[in-house]
Design a protein around this nucleic acid. Structure first.
Lengths: 302, 302
DNA sequence: ACCTGAACACCGTTCAAGT
DNA sequence: ACCTGAACACCGTTCAAGT
């Protein structure tokens, strides 16, 4: 269980107790306070663990009682009726990864959610690696920018925002996508690339520069995406993350800084401690890159 | 063994046969031709598997005979004599990850290379996650830009190149570094950040813009680094990778493209199929970003 | 004080056996 | 034709036991 955030480990523990039948529908699961006491985690972590289970439909909050195990989902019966298909496998895997990250995605888990045996999946995908690749292509399908509007700059900005939005919805995408330089050919990712190359084609840039510009943009979004993944859920719950980060790392940070030799960091930290959000960072970087591309377009056409 | 490249799986198989005593020093290990025959992989893959083992010192090529199991390394005796330390654990882990990627890094493997029990490692690092973090800090130490020379632009370019060089030496860094936005405080990474912030401090940019510019650069390098990781070793062996990619994916790519709807990709592909290298892509993106930063510096100081 | 081995609860995937 | 369960070769980490 490498790198799994604590709240997922706690959620997994409760999920296991439900799956084993130790907890049946209607039973109360441990309260956030009980989790804090037993696992020694912060309140926010316990809350997130229960929220993750609620999102899955495994538990629900009953006012005045607490959080209880939900009735077996009727959705499952439908899943069982429908024949297993590649699309169903990929869609289920995407749903799991959205909720719990790539660390929570296992073949056994996908099979469990679909109500089949693990091995039945291998009838529809050759292996886990290919399943993950198919998942990223779903993300690229969502990122497709649609009908082109405006000049090259407007088009590139729009396409980058679309991709960034897909990464935000699917924070695992950055890590799942192995290489965008020499990618495994995937139809939707290729459609996205085609769209961007077409947007730059009317400019004065050569083929090589067009390709470089495209890949530079992707690299930037990809880099931000990697940063987002682990803290993805935390950051989406507004506000929490900064405090949580301080709780966990503030002391350590202060200890290193207090040793001296970090005057600039110290002064920034004292003024406004890490008030950063990924969306404005994305916007800043995108503008810088587009400005930079505009500079060579102006140079080459001059 | 998710996502492990084929050549590492083959290398691991042979390593296991040596560790178990099935193959003893002086014995011939399977030739590249034998591996091709038995595993059905390309010649390049078999060659890389043996090269990886040779790099570890486990086998050596004997002209006229073939590749044989090497004598137990004298280095090992020295390792055993030296008391286990955090530095030794981290250095060994870095060596393994450099040679075989993060997929090849396991606590059991590190312990094996150091000649201790797996559990002895936990005396020096609390868990694998922390070990990986300590590894990335080693990378940042190597990336430190030294004494500042030139204006902000020269300094930023130098620092980015230093970081990129560290990523090239340690292709696992991009994936190992969870978040550079709200990072785990690590002394060397913080020194690197301090250096960059200081370089931008003399400009007209505000604190927020300085931080954004820094993180945009990191995100770009990080994104390129992720792309490099899986194909890292392939790309460093000059020339091989393009052909290998074509062998594996050319057909699939052609199949998708031939369906129509990708005119720009098709024309690029026909002219010069994916002649890209990461270093020139890095250079292009860096220049674009610096141009873009220069634009707002000019704007804000005007 | 330091190290160890067995055990636990997981992985992805192979393979022979079932319906 | 489709699905299954047992098994294999791995993981990271806990814990009681050794020196």
């Amino acid at each position: 269980m490498t790198e799994q955030p604590p709240y997922l480990a706690i959620a997994a523990g409760i999920r296991r107790r439900i799956a084993s039948g130790e907890l049946v529908p209607g039973d109360r699961v441990p309260s956030t306070r009980a989790i804090v006491r037993e696992s020694g985690v912060a309140m926010a972590t316990a809350t997130k663990a229960l929220a993750a289970l609620a999102r899955e439909g495994l538990v629900r909050a009953v006012p005045g009682v607490g959080t209880v195990v939900a009735e077996a989902r009727p959705a499952r019966a439908q899943d069982e009726a429908a024949p297993l298909s590649r699309e169903a496998v990929v869609a289920t895997a995407v749903r799991i990864a959205d909720a719990e990250g790539l660390a929570g995605l296992s073949m056994r888990r996908v099979a469990g959610d679909l109500g089949t045996s693990t091995m039945a999946l291998y009838r529809h995908v050759p292996n886990k690696g290919e399943l993950v690749r198919l998942m990223t292509d779903v993300g690229f399908k969502e990122a497709h920018p649609g009908r082109p509007v405006g000049d090259w700059r407007a088009q590139l900005a729009h396409a980058a925002r679309q991709l960034w939005a897909a990464y935000r919805r699917h924070p695992w995408m950055a890590r799942a996508m192995a290489s965008f330089i020499r990618p495994d050919p995937m139809p939707e990712a290729m459609k996205y690339t085609e769209w961007i190359l077409r947007a730059l084609r009317g400019t004065s840039l050569g083929v090589h520069q067009v390709m470089h510009a495209h890949l530079t943009l992707i690299a930037f979004v990809q880099g931000l995406g990697v940063a987002m993944e682990l803290e993805g859920h935390a950051l989406q719950d507004t506000g929490v993350s900064n405090d949580e980060w301080m709780d966990r790392n503030g002391g350590r940070f202060a200890a290193i800084v207090s040793g001296g030799g970090y005057p600039v960091l110290t002064s920034i930290f004292e003024h406004e401690p890490f008030e950063l959000d990924l969306d404005s960072l994305f916007g800043f970087g995108l503008d810088r890159l587009l400005d930079g591309i505009a500079v060579i377009i102006a140079e080459t056409s001059g």
